[in-house]
């Protein structure tokens, strides 16, 4: 028997005003997996993540994390329970220093010694951040900011990490490095990952399973290997 999913969405709907962005999403993420959601602009991928975190409240359906219903809760209650998001566009705190940004990731934690050790761990994953620890976040390059955003989320010791378009606006070489580190986080630290990406090729190579979203709905669900082979997916998302 497989273990119960760490995250489960059941027929979740959400809307911005009167415009429905999610029209009944169901998906599940099992512990230890890397699951990716791919789809075009405006398909509702980022909304899905924001709905999971409660920033956008769902209008129907339920979100279960770790066997408990979390939909309708305040977003700030989730990081202490091991669910953290790296939002789209990085959204680091530009006028706080790199170190202060990382400390914000550990905001709810009280164990100072462990926080210091986790920061060292983050610095081994991203050595460039150590060099720039006293620099303001806003002065970093795009790739460094993305690394900072991931490191900041790691400071909350997540069991499930939601990553929203880590490749956005970055050079291919840096994207490759970031994806390698994501893999490392998954394999060495045992963090389950839900990855939203437009770069379907890279995402499917990294992930174990994938969901394809179109206009607020999940249209396809399969193992990543099968999705990579699927001719329709290749045509629509892999540019063939």
């Amino acid at each position: 028997m497989t273990p119960p999913p760490i995250l489960e969405l059941r027929d979740v709907r959400s809307a911005y005003g009167r415009i429905e962005a999610l029209k009944g999403i169901s998906l599940a993420v099992n512990p230890g997996e890397i699951v990716t959601i791919i789809g075009a602009n405006g398909a509702g991928k980022s909304t899905t993540l924001m709905t999971i975190c409660g920033v956008v409240p769902p209008t129907a359906g339920e979100v279960r994390y770790d066997g408990e219903v979390i939909s309708g809760r305040n977003p700030d209650l989730l990081p202490p329970r091991g669910l953290c998001q790296v939002p789209e566009g990085r959204r680091i705190f530009p006028r706080l220093t790199v170190e202060e940004n990382l400390n914000m990731g550990a905001f709810f934690r009280k164990d100072q010694d462990q926080i210091a050790r986790d920061m060292e761990h983050a610095f081994t994953l991203f050595p460039v951040l150590k060099e720039r620890r006293r620099q303001r976040g806003g002065t970093l390059s795009g790739g460094e900011q993305q690394m900072l955003a991931i490191a900041r989320a790691l400071m909350s010791k997540p069991r499930l990490l939601l990553l929203d378009e880590p490749s956005l606006g970055l050079a291919p070489l840096i994207v490759k490095r970031i994806f390698e580190i994501v893999k490392q986080i998954n394999q060495q630290d045992g963090v389950t990952i839900l990855l939203v990406e437009q770069n379907a090729n890279l995402a499917l190579q990294l992930a174990t399973r994938g969901y394809v979203m179109e206009t607020g709905q999940v249209v396809l669900e399969d193992s990543a290997a099968n999705l990579l082979k699927n001719p329709e997916i290749r045509k629509a998302y892999l540019g063939e």
Partner: peptide, 21 residues
């Protein structure tokens, strides 16, 4: 104080980091 500054910088991001804004 640092949390206040984080809220000033980006309220949603602060919320996602577990700050009760």
């Amino acid at each position: 104080g640092r949390a206040w500054e984080a809220i000033r910088e980006d309220e949603t991001a602060a919320e996602l980091m577990g700050v009760n804004t």
